[in-house]
């Protein structure tokens, strides 16, 4: 049985492509390792420092909770308002981008292009720019989260809208509906559940984002992270982490339950 079959067997496909891919990945990793000055030896030699950092965090400063309730609520407020404004602005953006609603390519393509541009800018960077314009506080944070939310909600929803059932749309066209009626009866009933689900998802993302905007002065709990880490007050940092964890887990849980009910 150790002889190959007499019949002509196909030649194995060349593996050059696989080797080449592997080589490219390895080279990229090596270059990245050098460029970033990474050293896992450092990580090992500094393990005591990391351990002591963690030990310093305990016990958490429980009394500090009282002081961070207000900024924590502020964080939630920013997320609520930013998500809401983002959702409102998203509606026209979705209608412009979805190519089964807006059949004019020279409008839908530029609209998508702008949407993609917005999505490339990280939220912290948006916040830093708005802080420069409006000064410190919640307002620049809300602006940043609003724009950030449009990027997520509009993108996810318009893609869902493009996948909806064509039947009702054709039916509405057939009964002679105008554009507004057409959108109200053919698009909105089908897209609403997706839209609400994505808004809730974005709210979850925004809670996490709002928690760090304070690092650049845009309100919320982030400012407290910055100052406590600056003053090396690790028990307080731990309190902040616990509080953030609790809020995020609760909001994720509630939002997930609501989303499950929707879809």
């Amino acid at each position: 049985m150790s002889q190959p079959p007499k019949k002509t067997i196909p030649k194995p496909p060349t593996r050059i492509k696989h080797y080449l891919t592997a080589a490219i990945v390895l080279v990229l990793l090596a270059l990245s390792y050098i460029q970033t000055g990474s050293s896992f030896m450092d990580l090992i030699t500094n393990r005591d420092q990391m351990a002591s950092l963690v030990i310093d965090m305990f016990p958490p400063d429980w009394a500090y909770f009282e002081k961070i309730i207000e900024p924590m609520l502020e964080t939630i407020r920013m997320a609520v308002i930013g998500t809401t404004f983002g959702a409102i602005i998203s509606v026209p953006v979705i209608l412009l981008c979805a190519n089964n609603v807006n059949r004019i390519p020279w409008i839908s393509y530029p609209a998508r292009f702008i949407l993609n541009l917005i999505r490339t800018v990280p939220e912290l960077l948006l916040a830093a720019i708005f802080v420069a314009i409006f000064g410190l506080g919640m307002i620049p944070g809300i602006f940043a989260l609003t724009i950030f939310s449009v990027g997520i909600i509009a993108k996810l929803t318009y893609e869902s809208v493009e996948g909806i059932d064509k039947g009702p749309m054709e039916a509405m066209t057939a009964v002679g509906a105008n554009k507004v009626q057409w959108i109200t009866f053919a698009i909105i009933p089908q897209a609403a559940a997706y839209f609400v689900s994505y808004v809730l998802y974005t709210f979850e993302v925004n809670i996490r984002a709002a928690a760090i905007l304070g690092l650049v002065g845009a309100g919320g709990i982030g400012l407290y992270y910055d100052s406590n880490l600056g003053f090396l007050n690790y028990p307080r940092v731990n309190t902040l982490i616990i509080a953030t964890l609790a809020v995020v887990l609760i909001i994720d849980f509630v939002s997930n339950k609501l989303r499950e009910k929707l879809l």
Partner: peptide, 22 residues
């Protein structure tokens, strides 16, 4: 090992499908 590959190709040949090996 090479013998295993030949064994596999022979097995495929026995069920008349060796041309689909790859």
């Amino acid at each position: 090992p090479k013998e295993d590959v030949n064994l596999a190709l022979n097995a495929l040949d026995r069920v008349n499908i060796v041309e689909k090996a790859y």
